[in-house]
Design a protein around this nucleic acid. Structure first.
Lengths: 350, 350
DNA sequence: CGGGCGTCTGACAACCTTGTCAGGGGAGTC
DNA sequence: GACTCCCCTGACAAGGTTGTCAGACGCCCG
């Protein structure tokens, strides 16, 4: 009477194969295959015998072996290459992909690239060596041409968040430029004329687009672009906090801040709180974050919808897998402007 | 001169196989295999010929076919079954697993179960049908006995966050009870005698442990357990906010709150802010969250370390894969008490 | 010059599954 | 009773790879 399996003493029992099931049921392997795949053309008695053997042996079909032999050669798995599985943007996106894939009974291989081009290639290679049916990629490199071979081999590709370079393929993007532009407009409407830009690494395409939106917003409002109010290459909370502090202590300090990314926004808030200026300096962030409406003041943001991006990307991918052969499609998802308070603070005295 | 590959016109070029490489290089398939796997025993000229053919054909070894044939039968992939890939706890844990797996050049299949027992089983089944080398599971069901067959088939299992039922296996847990107990002690030290418990679904083992810790904390401080101050089964921010509001409006309202989980903590904060009581009612949360130290007051929490859990789980798993045959191990990770302010508010007037 | 040894190579089987095809058996037709 | 037709079943090959083994080749020894 062993209540619990004990790995020390548990006998090793190799997994049953189709052959074992066939032997136990007294039929040929093909007949077992027919039952497993619901092909029909098997007498009820044999079906029962096979079913019984399957449950007695706890048989699990070997999907790899099956995919190898099947004419479609589908593995029912897709690869997802994202920036960092631990960050809220990537993980919300991944989860949405999972939900769509789940309906199709497709599994997900996932990996993080951490802004590393090498890692992007390594992951793609590892995934294709496993013959995934398709790939969803948030590209980091400057050139995705190396993926052409994958497309030619029939593996559909969908890019998310950033456009691929040197390759035409389906992609799903946020309208970064329009979002950033709108943030600047809102700040201008509140009366600000000195709006600073706090940006992520300038090599990141989305950061470039947000910066372009910032510039366009200023231009459209007839506001000058002051180089002293532009900071690039902030990639951590601390970077952002330091840069914000420096800006606000400078001569001719800005009266409003546009933070081009999640962590930058948080850094800016940290700095504002440290300086006791959070109620005096306006702040608009790009990317929503969980606690934004519990802070004081509540934080106004340009929100992306990572789940919608993931869903859209997965749907494009599955359409390709279902045979869609049209030209590459580009889905541009609008951002949402969420006014919560911090972006509506008017300019105060110097 | 086509700058870009165009899926409309791109010719379909099936993936090259070992056979193709062998044909192009004018050697046998086995020789190609030797080169690919660095087996040696091949003359330099042939190695070069093979290398050339490989790069010309852009050959990618088929890992599934290889695993099928290899005596170790390793697929270099592990499955990770977590609560919800989008929540910060799961995603931090997953990321840590990924980092360990990455060093071993092992890929990750991931899926969410959403507290659904069926889904747990379906995912495990799907993963084992792909013959993953091992599984990391945050179990939801009341019985994991169904996994015994996997262990017997030689697939190592490591459980995280929650202990498996009906099965002895490696697991990595947070010391939930000690953490909750400590929160109660801290609140008691601040002078509170009416400390409410706001808990997640009572069927969740970790919630039970935290409740046990709460009870023990009260007992050790000689405080009464008031059933009117205990609320279970709060699973969303809204649930938690409503329950908190009701508690604080009741006769004999508590002067301190212990929120047993992330979302519950956030709901409690929302309610406190709505009632304007955030500076008067003490609050301790279980699980840290990103903005906890930007809120006012800053939120004191019992912090778990999901990354450490993921790392530990992955390490246990890889030790098993490296041949470790000892008894099941149980790693209990301590929690950290983070005092930020909200937990140190003294009891005020009614 | 036959034999032995070590190195390198390729033919072939095997892994687990599915697709093809032909054969066996029973029912129905003339 | 001979024939066709259909249904069911199993033998066999194939998918991409690796492991086994025997053979080829060059070399040295007696």
């Amino acid at each position: 009477m062993t209540e619990h399996a004990d790995p020390v003493t548990t006998p090793y029992r190799p997994r049953a194969t189709l052959r074992d099931v066939a032997a136990m049921a007294g039929v040929s392997m093909k007949t077992v295959s027919r039952v497993v795949n619901g092909e029909g053309g098997v007498t009820p008695q044999k079906v029962d015998a096979v079913r019984l053997a399957i449950s007695r042996l706890d048989y699990r079909p070997n999907v790899s072996a099956s995919a190898l032999r099947r004419s479609s050669r589908r593995t029912a798995a897709i690869g997802t290459v994202l920036e960092d599985l631990a960050n809220p943007f990537s993980s919300a996106l991944l989860r949405a992909v999972e939900d769509v894939a789940n309906e199709k009974r497709v599994l997900i291989l996932a990996g993080s690239v951490d802004e590393d081009q090498q890692r992007e290639r390594a992951l793609v290679r590892a995934f294709t060596e496993r013959r995934v049916d398709g790939l969803i990629i948030a590209p980091v490199g400057e050139d995705q041409g190396y993926l052409r071979a994958e497309m030619e081999a029939g593996t559909p590709l969908v890019f998310v968040d950033r456009q691929p370079q040197g390759l035409l393929a389906d992609c799903v993007l946020s309208d970064n430029e329009a979002g950033a532009r709108d943030a600047v407009h809102r700040l201008a409407e509140a009366g600000h004329r000195r709006i600073a830009y706090l940006g992520d690494l300038a090599i990141i395409p989305t950061a470039q687009q947000r910066f372009a939106g910032y510039q366009r917003g200023l231009l459209e409002r007839g506001l000058p672009l002051d180089p002293a109010h532009v900071v690039h290459d902030l990639h951590t909370v601390d970077d952002a906090a330091r840069a914000t502090t420096a800006l606000l202590r400078s001569e001719d300090a800005p009266t409003a801040l546009f933070a081009s990314q999640n962590l930058v926004t948080i850094g800016a808030i940290t700095a504002l709180q440290d300086l006791g200026l959070e109620q005096r300096v306006a702040l608009f962030g790009f990317d929503d974050f969980p606690m934004a409406d519990l802070l004081k003041p509540r934080v106004s943001v340009i929100a992306q919808d990572p789940a919608a991006m993931g869903r859209a990307a997965a749907e494009l991918l599955f359409e390709r897998l279902d045979g869609e052969r049209g030209r590459p499609r580009r889905i541009l998802l609008p951002t949402t402007t969420v006014l919560r308070g911090s972006g509506e603070i008017p300019p105060g005295r110097p």
